[in-house]
């Protein structure tokens, strides 16, 4: 599977804005919505990506492998879920910490094109020797 890198970057920008709004408003519902977006994106049906495709009709100059960003969306989902648990149970440090971590990664991707979630793969694999 190949993906349009511009659509991925656009999705990262929208994700950054949504997560920043979650922190400002403290809305668990908004975070839940973002978690659904993360979950859909793992399966290659990124709602933000579809918005991008609706606006931009020109073909991308080059495509890139879709597997790394999809994996990163999974990492994003994990953080969003932890954040949701924090909001629901009103453990504020957990809610803010997890959401801020997801925002950190989304912003790095949006502003620098650096996929922090992708980098987690090897680190997780190193920590889980038994999974081999």
């Amino acid at each position: 599977m190949q993906a349009d890198p511009r659509a991925l970057r656009f999705a990262a920008v929208v994700t950054t804005i949504v997560l920043a709004l979650v922190l400002v408003t403290g809305s668990a519902w908004l975070l839940a919505a973002q978690a659904v977006v993360f979950a859909l994106s793992i399966f290659g049906v990124s709602p933000y990506g579809m918005v991008f495709k609706g606006i931009v009709k020109s073909p991308p100059r080059e495509l890139e492998d879709a597997a790394p960003p999809r994996f990163a969306q999974g990492v994003g989902l994990a953080f969003a879920l932890v954040g949701l648990v924090g909001y629901v149970t009103q453990i504020t440090p957990l809610a803010l910490g997890a959401t801020a971590a997801a925002l950190f990664a989304a912003f790095l991707n949006a502003a620098f094109g650096f996929c922090l979630g992708c980098e987690m793969f090897l680190i997780i694999r190193r920590l889980l020797p038994a999974a081999r």
Partner: peptide, 18 residues
């Protein structure tokens, strides 16, 4: 919170890029 996170991410991004 948002600001602190974005500043930290910007610093991390600049260091990573360099």
């Amino acid at each position: 919170m948002v600001l602190v996170t974005l500043v930290a991410a910007t610093l991390a991004g600049v260091v990573l890029r360099r």
